[in-house]
Design a binder for these strands. Structure first.
Length: 308
DNA sequence: TATTATT
């Protein structure tokens, strides 16, 4: 029987075929448009506009591992455009583009599930490393990782980190009360020392031309200067980035890049800062900074592909 | 692990 919030767990498992290559509710989407899909006249989930129930696709070797992970997509590319790009290689069962939860803008990352594994293989051959029609950067196309293949330890670590992050951001934002310009103002009576830096910045000299290829990210809400931080320890987490960069000004986002399977930091991360002057000051101050046993390398993010 | 992103 239907209950608010969905099917009883045991029935959902057998109905959706969680043991197969499909994962839970995705399987419902998998057969959207198929001839055995039934739309319900009501919604078992209060937030859902429409629910659909259908037979799961039979599990077989030919459709297993047909799910692709795509990164480096142009932020402007829609899900439909991504499907058009991949549809030349086979029948697409489902697709998704991940978006920023706050701004709604594309994160440049998506998924494509083909009907057949062979189609996915051909799509990798044909599209991995290719630039989609007039895009500045090539995309990466590979088989998607399956969350269920994560180790229990990695899952625990991620659970811990996701709950710790909820506090790390706002907490360390408070350090911005001690912004560098305010500190210097108090210490030296300088009205706005950062404006002195601005006078000698590439912006002041020749506008934006000196900054081609560095990390000014576009988009109205997501705008900011992206900073690359290298030589983080395998145990580094987001809080260290907040602590390091927060005192220099407005930090809107930090990210430690981890191995998806082990959850260990790959040695680098990214920080987005709103203002060029503050980002430049943070880079000048933190590049070469010794964090524990490690010496950090900090710079504006560049496009690896275009580097000379 | 040297310029992200894993539904």
């Amino acid at each position: 029987a239907w209950e608010p919030g969905g099917l009883p767990q045991g029935e959902a498992k057998s109905l959706w075929g969680l043991e197969s290559d499909c994962e839970g509710p995705e399987s419902i989407r998998d057969t959207r448009g198929g001839d055995q899909t039934t739309a319900l006249p009501f919604s078992p989930c209060p937030s859902a506009a429409l629910s659909q129930v259908s037979y799961a696709r039979p599990s077989s070797a030919s459709i297993r591992d047909a799910n692709l992970y795509v990164s480096g997509l142009p932020k402007s590319m829609s899900q439909k455009e991504m499907e058009q790009l991949f549809s030349q290689y086979g029948r697409i069962i489902t697709s998704r583009i991940l978006v920023d939860q706050v701004t709604g803008v594309s994160r440049g990352v998506g998924f494509i599930r083909f009907d057949k594994r062979i189609e996915a293989e051909e799509a990798i051959k044909g599209l991995n490393g290719q630039k989609p029609l007039g895009a500045a950067e090539p995309i990466t196309v590979k088989f998607a990782n399956n969350p269920s293949q994560k180790t229990g330890q990695a899952l625990l670590t991620q659970l811990y980190q996701s709950s710790a992050r909820r506090y790390a951001g706002p907490l360390h934002h408070q350090t911005q009360r001690f912004r560098l310009d305010n500190l210097l103002n108090m210490a030296y009576g300088v009205k706005s020392p950062l404006s002195l830096i601005a006078r000698f910045s590439p912006i002041a000299i020749d506008g934006m031309s000196g900054l081609a290829g560095v990390g000014l990210s576009g988009g109205a809400a997501g705008a900011g200067w992206c900073i690359f931080v290298y030589n983080l320890s395998p145990e580094a987490d987001e809080s260290v980035l907040w602590q390091l960069f927060g005192p220099f000004g407005a930090v809107t986002n930090v990210k430690v890049i981890r191995d998806f399977t082990t959850n260990k930091c790959k040695g680098f991360g990214f920080v987005t800062m709103t203002n060029y002057d503050e980002a430049a000051m943070a880079i000048a101050s933190l590049n070469g900074y010794r964090l524990g046993e490690r010496v950090l390398q900090v710079s504006f993010k560049t496009s690896k592909q275009h580097k000379a």
